[in-house]
Write a protein that binds this DNA or RNA. Structure first.
Lengths: 204, 204
DNA sequence: ACAATATTTGACCTATTGGTCAATCTAAGC
DNA sequence: GCTTAGATTGACCAATAGGTCAAATATTGT
């Protein structure tokens, strides 16, 4: 889909720029980030950035669109033929795992949506919404069959997004409240969330 | 606590500035907001802003500290002597109501924490953490008495913050996914969350 | 080795932005 | 009315930031 970079140098530097930009944008937001910061983080000069990407905005949009694919993957894998509760718990685990392994992407997305999603509203109203419609229909059918508790499927998804992404987006708050300097809180979080959702979803 | 503004004009303009700044900062973040935007929104000139507040940063910090008080109030009101499940559900309702009535404050807070909470880390490690310690002890005692299901109290609070604030912070995403142009989704959300938390918390 | 092509950067340009300041205008007491 | 203190702003300044460009340097293919 994406045009293959020609040379090894282009491959390497484009990747270095995107990685540096993800680091910087996810921490400081679009307007809070400067080309100099990104160039510095990538170990390149500012004009050299512009040699690889025509503008700051193109870098940002590239990151957002790369991220969206990754972001939607776990929901795609929700299997209508699987065991309902285990499928949903598996989705929770996958989303939490993404918060652990890709917190920068999560914050990039959060920043974008907080500002009103000016650059990805189209994808949200298109791809995301279609996928949500598809998967909430599956969840609704599980409810209709009495396999899981009757909870609004869309709000159920919102709650999963919110609770799992919270550990990436509000990381500093979580760490500050839990104390125990910089420990990895994800095992705890996973145990909690799995238990929590199992209780809420198991039909009476 | 806060020095009373002397004249009526000062009272009115300071308030107009803070209100305009909340609007702008919550939408665009600190660096994404300009004094001109705020001045324009407040109906004042830029030098006039600086007449009332010495700098952009002071305006921002003033908003953050005003917001924190409001933000912690619902947790303060969690009553150790009340009915455990109803107390927690009441907290959920209050937090959701704050997302509805004060979405700008929620987004201001989210923006700040996303950027690493540079200006309110002190309050998070102090006031907030102390309050959380106090209230999670109460919740733990309810668990020990078998009044609610055994779920880690701190992560339970995180989940409440995440799910309720989601409706303010990710508002545009929620609206886009639910469709039905710009409707008020809060009644639905409240019904979902109350049902959801009641299921999860009711002991087996 | 050498031409052609790709990569890199110092210097520079322009627009924006936070903030200053002297001058003006307004409102309040007397 | 007039004085004084409070309120307002046009003009300006220095710093920053996105982006350009021509010149220099490195790489590649033959």
């Amino acid at each position: 889909m994406k045009p293959q970079r020609k040379t090894r140098i282009q491959q390497k530097n484009s990747q270095a720029i995107l990685d540096a930009a993800l680091e910087v944008f996810s921490r400081h937001g679009y307007r809070g980030s400067t080309l100099d910061q990104i160039a510095n983080e990538a170990g390149l000069s500012k004009p050299n950035l512009i040699y690889y990407f025509p503008s700051k905005e193109v870098i940002h949009v590239t990151l957002l669109s790369d991220m969206l694919e990754t972001w939607l993957a776990p929901l795609h894998s929700l299997d209508p033929a699987g065991d309902p509760i285990e499928e949903i718990l598996g989705y929770v685990r996958q989303k939490l795992e993404m918060s652990r392994s890709r917190p920068r992407e999560s914050r990039l997305f959060a920043n974008e949506v907080l500002q009103g999603a000016p650059r990805i509203m189209e994808a949200i109203k298109g791809e995301l919404r279609d996928l949500v419609d598809e998967k909430t229909a599956v969840i609704q059918s599980w409810i209709d069959e009495g396999k899981i508790a009757p909870l609004d499927p869309k709000h159920l998804l919102f709650s999963i997004w919110a609770t799992t992404q919270h550990y990436a987006d509000f990381d500093v708050q979580v760490s500050a409240v839990l104390g125990s300097g910089g420990n990895d809180h994800f095992p705890e979080a996973e145990a909690f969330l799995v238990d929590f959702y199992r209780r809420a979803l198991t039909p009476a």
